[in-house]
Design a protein around this nucleic acid. Structure first.
Length: 236
DNA sequence: GTTAGATTAGCGCGGGGCCT
DNA sequence: AGGCCCCGCGCTAATCTAAC
């Protein structure tokens, strides 16, 4: 008999669309006794307004309200997800400073939940939330299911971000040459083109050439943006 | 605050070597 | 042959710095 993780992995490694894939995750969540399931992906770029995409089987009205009131900005589980990859449990204490948000979530049947985030090599943060209306999450249940829930989070993020990233952030798929990476590293360290030229024993113009090529590949407006993008995406 | 000079960044163009 | 990587030159634009 195959292990639960193995069956799950096979289900998530198919070539299904995001929608089909999310339905698989929903059914895996259901096996863990969660009616609701939500996945959010937050990219690192643009720095001033990072792209966020969400998909869930929450009640449509709640999804609309969440969007309309921009609850992304106050949701404490998102705040937690961005600074910690440890799982977090929905508790009254967690939502103490966002009472209105918490009450509205309750009114839509979202009462008991658990969430965990994960970061990939491109620094994109994915968060999987598992929730339900009726049965509180006991310590015993958590202890018994913690591993499976974490495993589902990890694989959901890997599978979904693999499909979403190329569309949302094509730069993440860029292949930089070794020379381009080297000059961007020195640039990110604050070296001028002249300094990099003497360090790498090439002319300044050549340094600029590589930086320029990298900037084009990264869709960056200038060398500063190119160095930041490359660093944020984990290329350096 | 203004100005002039120095420094740095950016652009267009061309060419050689290597690999498929 | 074509694509990719690497290297180079001359020039202009933008920015910084110090002197007035």
């Amino acid at each position: 008999m195959k292990a639960w993780q193995e069956i799950q992995l096979q289900a998530l490694q198919t070539n299904d669309s995001e929608h089909q894939l999310f339905q698989t995750i929903v059914s895996l969540a259901a096996e863990l006794d969660f009616d609701y399931c939500a996945y959010g992906l937050r990219l690192v770029l643009p720095l001033n307004n990072p792209k966020i995409v969400k998909t869930s089987n929450y009640p449509t009205a709640w999804q609309a309200q969440y969007q309309a009131k921009n609850y992304c900005a106050v949701d404490p589980t998102i705040k937690h997800a961005l600074c910690s990859t440890l799982p977090i449990l929905w508790t009254d204490g967690l939502f103490a400073s966002t009472a209105e948000f918490w009450e509205e979530a309750h009114s839509f049947g979202l009462r008991y939940g658990w969430a965990q985030s994960m970061r990939d090599v491109h620094s994109a943060t994915g968060m999987l939330t598992l929730a339900r209306s009726d049965e509180p999450l006991s310590e015993t249940e958590l202890a018994a299911k913690a591993f499976k829930m974490a495993w589902l989070t990890q694989n959901a993020h890997i599978a979904l971000s693999r499909r979403l990233l190329p569309k949302l952030l094509p730069e993440a798929d860029t292949k930089l040459s070794n020379r381009e990476i080297a000059v961007l590293r020195w640039t990110a360290d604050g070296k001028t083109s002249g300094e990099i030229a003497s360090i790498m024993k090439i002319t300044e113009r050549t340094v600029n050439f590589h930086i320029n090529n990298a900037a084009t590949k990264l869709n960056a407006a200038n060398k500063t943006s190119a160095a930041v993008k490359a660093a944020m995406l984990g290329f350096l």
